[in-house]
Design a protein around this nucleic acid. Structure first.
Lengths: 244, 244
DNA sequence: ACACATCAACTGGTCCTACCACGAGAGAAG
DNA sequence: CTTCTCTCGTGGTAGGACCAGTTGATGTGT
């Protein structure tokens, strides 16, 4: 239905490209070995190699001898040393600028995930949600991030996926920031958990409008809470060194 | 001296590319068979095939089953080969995904520019707007982009600025695409100019809600128009080589 | 002599298997 | 705990066998 009159290796190249774009294959992360791909796709290793060559020629993947093949990041990721990161570390307002954009993008992602998400993706979201719920508050920042990531992936919008991927570093940092500062306050924790549940339910029930509103409100709430916190007395802790 | 730390197939690809470019292998002419190349270059047929694949991925050669490989006429190699641009050259949908995100970001930028823009920035926007208005439709794509850029800069949100900057190349291309395809239709041109005027007025009068709505509607309109155009009959022209 | 079918000899496409070269991690040696 | 080594997984190359289109020469029937 889709492999119209093409050579097998070209079909494979197309499928791989599709996976990379949709985020099914995480950007800048190692993708399966040639032998694994060959077996999984039911073709010989040769065609896999030729497909990878073609994608390499287009600059979509990069393969390194002895290590493997990697999907090249579509949009430059913001590293720890980027100018934006500098701003973020020095200027308080940038944090809220980030939340502002985040509210937009995550809202859209949630809406699209509700509309276009496949059953598998909704299951992945469910899984991430339950895992996040299971772990007590302070230690689940990684799961929190994963939950949001699954939603974005289910949006089926490559531009959105890669844009949010490029914000990974500051985003992660912001998640840690919010959780560290707010989580020990019972009220905030309940709010956040309730928001997550709202977002989750909206997406699963495919209510796009509700999903967008919930996600945007959630981010906005966290941002406002941080801002109030900082305005009142306690300084917002910003500096963390984490890996994921 | 030449094959520094490269894989053999990459060297072969490079050598073939050079031969094609300097005319040793006449364009649009059949080049030696894979088996002949393998023997003449003293390598296995596998590496020859992979080299050809890589060149095929870059659009330099084209191989046809049963006939042979052909050097394609090199039109323009200059164009920015950003991975993101690669995608939506091959995947039509990505273009509309881009517009979807663009509608979000530009809407927010317009709203923020209305709220937070300084007088100087509003003047810069005014200047860009008048310049864009002055030039007849087909030739002002650069001014169109500048107009939108000024608005984003006036938003005072570094994250927004950075994200839209990272989308610059594909964004530029999309602007060119839309103008090239739609500008000769009187109806579309009038719509677009009216939209621009609405956005401009909303920002200058500091009406954030109106600004967001106008900008988002504008982008959405262009996207829909392109989609209708493509769905109906005429193919959307996507290929352009421009600098700015 | 012409038109047509046939077939043989190209071409690229796929598969396979063995082997080499490089890199990373586990485990032994200090 | 550090360092070295060695194994194992990875991509890279080789060469053979066979399949699948394309082409053109050959041959046959009219």
């Amino acid at each position: 239905m889709k492999d119209k009159s093409k050579t097998i290796s070209q079909s494979i190249a197309y499928r791989l490209e599709q996976m990379i774009l949709d985020g099914s294959l995480p950007p800048e992360k190692k993708l399966p070995s040639e032998r694994q791909l060959a077996e999984r796709l039911g073709v010989s290793r040769s065609v896999v190699r030729e497909a990878l060559r073609e994608l390499a020629g287009r600059g979509i993947v990069e393969t390194i001898h002895g290590r493997g093949s990697f999907a090249k990041k579509v949009i430059e990721e913001i590293g720890e040393t980027s100018p934006l990161m500098e701003l973020y570390n020095t200027h308080a307002r940038t944090l809220y600028d980030l939340y502002e954009v985040r509210a937009l993008l995550e809202g859209e992602a949630a809406a699209l995930a509700a509309e276009n998400g496949t059953q598998e993706e909704h299951y992945a979201i469910t899984k991430a949600f339950k895992e996040m719920e299971a772990v007590p508050a302070p230690a689940n920042f990684a799961l929190d991030y994963t939950f949001h990531l699954r939603i974005v992936e289910a949006s089926h919008n490559p531009v959105l996926v890669h844009l949010l991927a490029s914000l990974k570093s500051p985003l992660l940092k912001s998640v840690v920031t919010s959780l560290s500062n707010l989580v020990h306050r019972e009220t905030f924790r309940e709010h956040i958990e309730r928001h997550h549940k709202q977002i989750y339910n909206a997406i699963i029930s495919r209510n796009a409008v509700w999903a967008r509103k919930s996600a945007a409100t959630h981010v906005k709430y966290v941002s406002d809470a941080l801002q109030n916190l900082e305005a009142s007395d306690q300084p917002v802790i910003r500096d963390f060194s984490i890996e994921l």
